[in-house]
Design a protein around this nucleic acid. Structure first.
Lengths: 260, 260
DNA sequence: CGTAAGCTTGACAAAGTTCAACGATTGTGG
DNA sequence: CCACAATCGTTGAACTTTGTCAAGCTTACG
């Protein structure tokens, strides 16, 4: 597992080739566009959709939201009325404790679904914040309920998305509860590499979207610890790191860090 | 939040008064019984069920499974074909790393749903193990899909159960990533107290179903640390502890432990 | 271009782990 | 039903990992 630790929905790599526009029609904050041309389609529309529901579903158009770095998609306590699909860009989710402490619980990439935490109580239990320019597909929950009843494939796909989030969080718990700091950082790097590869980016060369502090929060350690471990891995020839840019030099070496 | 940290689906307390039989008809490992008389009904059947689906749903009968201490409901890797509702008893869930490390990810009480982690990949990602005599309601996933299409309330209820599990795990991540050992143990005790209260048990007097080692695993620390903290809390007059039996002496004192 | 935010590194402190010994409890087979 | 083994729990002492504080440097942004 290792690199699967912070895993993400499985996708056909082809679905995510380059970043770019993907039928954004206007620059307003709520953009309309046909979903049938969207690159995320394999994710939105289960591949085996039967005739009638497919035609109906393909006609469906969901609004978009464009966010800039630091803007929130939703905040903890906000009324839940939609789930969100990341189309382009990166989003972090953050959970808060009343005493001000907070924890980054996820870093989300194109194709991933956000906001399902709001369904339980009708209000979101976390914040979702854009880490740069980001394009989000907004799927109103009542639409989803209806679609889900009409097409069994949509329902099953939705359930799988829920389930995937549960598995991802389970693995995060395992990471936070059972791994040493170096192992956690390693799992984080390997997982990023894997997920970026699935989206058509380089497996070994990428940009961390998070600050050291955010990485530390996600991994349950202090920013200084993250920094020291990056430096140590660089000295050991496992990675090259310059600010947020990472190059994995020895993926095998990294894999060896996990499990002693 | 504090006590909500390891939270559970919200239930009307009345639904869980004493433990006992709850229409178990035979002693075989797969017991049949009418679900319409079940004490878990408020959980299985959303309260606002409309006429027709209610009649249909009430006629539905799901098989049961009886487990003894240490028996597994499912194991990691097993084919997913059903979700499970705890009727009586307690169940732990455990996630494993290939190198043998494992982590307890949850302690589940009557009314809670298990096994949704298997939907993502078609195989379970965790083990579920009974902590004593346990009665489980087995809900085949294909039945659930059908029911969920037929009655919007069932669908929404199911989604809420999924969502609740996501929120619970988020809070676990927060606990594991941001709290000190004493705070984690406190959150664990307060959460147990709250959930047992909701099921009609004493808020201050209860039995830990887990060993020190299992508690440590759940909370991301070693068993010795758990033991020391229990001893310290006892000396401080916050709790009385004797083996697995706990009495909370000062719930306010415990609440004060969280957040410095 | 200046200021704030982000990153690195060192020295030290604190929290938690490890190892070890021993006592208590539980469960099982004689 | 007892006895013995295995598991479980407690506690101390030494050690390891990670956190804290502080200083200085770099980068990014208005």
């Amino acid at each position: 597992m290792s690199a699967q630790l912070l895993a993400t929905p499985e996708l056909s790599p082809a679905a995510f080739r380059p970043v770019s526009e993907c039928n954004a029609r206007t620059m307003s904050s709520a953009v309309q566009g046909s979903c049938s041309g969207c690159r995320l389609q394999e994710l939105c529309l289960p591949s085996g959709l039967s005739e009638r529901p497919l035609r109906e579903f393909a006609a469906v158009v969901f609004p978009h939201r464009r966010l800039k770095a630091g803007e929130a998609l939703f905040r903890s306590g906000a009324i839940f009325d939609a789930v969100y699909l990341v189309r382009t860009g990166f989003v972090k989710t953050v959970v808060l404790l009343e005493d001000g402490r907070e924890q980054v619980t996820g870093l989300h990439m194109p194709g991933e679904m956000l906001g399902m935490d709001g369904l339980a109580s009708g209000r979101h239990a976390s914040d979702a914040v854009a880490l740069g320019d980001t394009d989000i597909c907004v799927v109103p929950y009542d639409r989803l309920e209806t679609l889900s009843c009409e097409a069994r494939e949509v329902q099953r796909h939705l359930h799988r998305m829920f389930s995937h989030e549960i598995v991802r969080e389970q693995r995060m718990m395992l990471l936070l509860g059972s791994m040493r700091a170096e192992e956690r950082v390693t799992a984080f790097l390997l997982n990023l590499s894997e997920r970026l590869t699935a989206r058509g980016y380089s497996p070994s060369d990428f940009v961390l979207r998070l600050t050291r502090e955010e990485i530390g929060s996600l991994l349950g350690m202090k920013l200084e610890t993250v920094s020291r471990i990056f430096s140590k891995f660089q000295k050991a020839g496992l990675i090259e790191i310059d600010g947020k840019h990472v190059r994995i030099v020895s993926i095998e070496g990294l894999r060896g860090v996990i499990g002693r």
